[in-house]
Design a protein around this nucleic acid. Sequence first.
DNA 1: TTGATAGGTAGGATATTTCCTACGTATAGT
DNA 2: ACTATACGTAGGAAATATCCTACCTATCAA
Lengths: 113, 113
Amino acid sequence: MSSDALFAALASPARRRLLELLLREGDQPAGRLAERFDMSRPSVSEHLKVLRDAGLVAEARRGRERHYRLEAEPLMSLRDWLSPYERFWRERLAALGTILDEMPSTMDEKDDD
Amino acid sequence: MSSDALFAALASPARRRLLELLLREGDQPAGRLAERFDMSRPSVSEHLKVLRDAGLVAEARRGRERHYRLEAEPLMSLRDWLSPYERFWRERLAALGTILDEMPSTMDEKDDD
DNA sequence: TTGATAGGTAGGATATTTCCTACGTATAGT
DNA sequence: ACTATACGTAGGAAATATCCTACCTATCAA
């Protein structure tokens, strides 16, 4: 409902890395995820909690392990949030193109970057 | 370059609101933006600084005013960040569709939630 | 030049985040 | 039943974020 939790969850590099690991390597138990981090296991566990609260991951208990899986749905609301900005961006690009089209053609120099 | 500053900038509701104001109402001087907030003008000014540092807004000095405008380009890197998750999301949706297709057709009950 | 306006910066109080080391709970294996 | 493993939670230290009230600078207008 509130996108605040979503944006806040994504603000931490550690949490974005967790999402990326789940995306690229699939579901994993918490411990296996934690191994990859320089930080303590409980800290990773807390980051997982933030992601859980934001609906970005879900856990499934398998024996004494807890397997986490990516839940991408909330990210689709991020895409929705983004889209008017994308429209804005495209309009600016289009306007820039028009300006360039209207420029004297004698201005053809090489541009490198 | 680093997306950390971008995500961090978007983490604050006040800053997202600033972006939205610039998107929907166009360029505005800092003071006019600040009027809309419950917080003090210097606080808004600091939020604008964070947005500036993230490349999300640019200022143009006009007399004693500073007009801010939206710079949507960094948000396009957010879209890029998002896209693999969107692909993931679509694949899950497709998989769900397949499962539903393979279900016995006798299972058509109403579901409410 | 003097005064008013626009808006940034400094310093500080308070809240929040991030990380840690214990510690608790549940499951698996013996 | 006992021990080890997996993993969360508690409590707290330290860093960072958020907000405030001064305060400073630059421009405009008389």
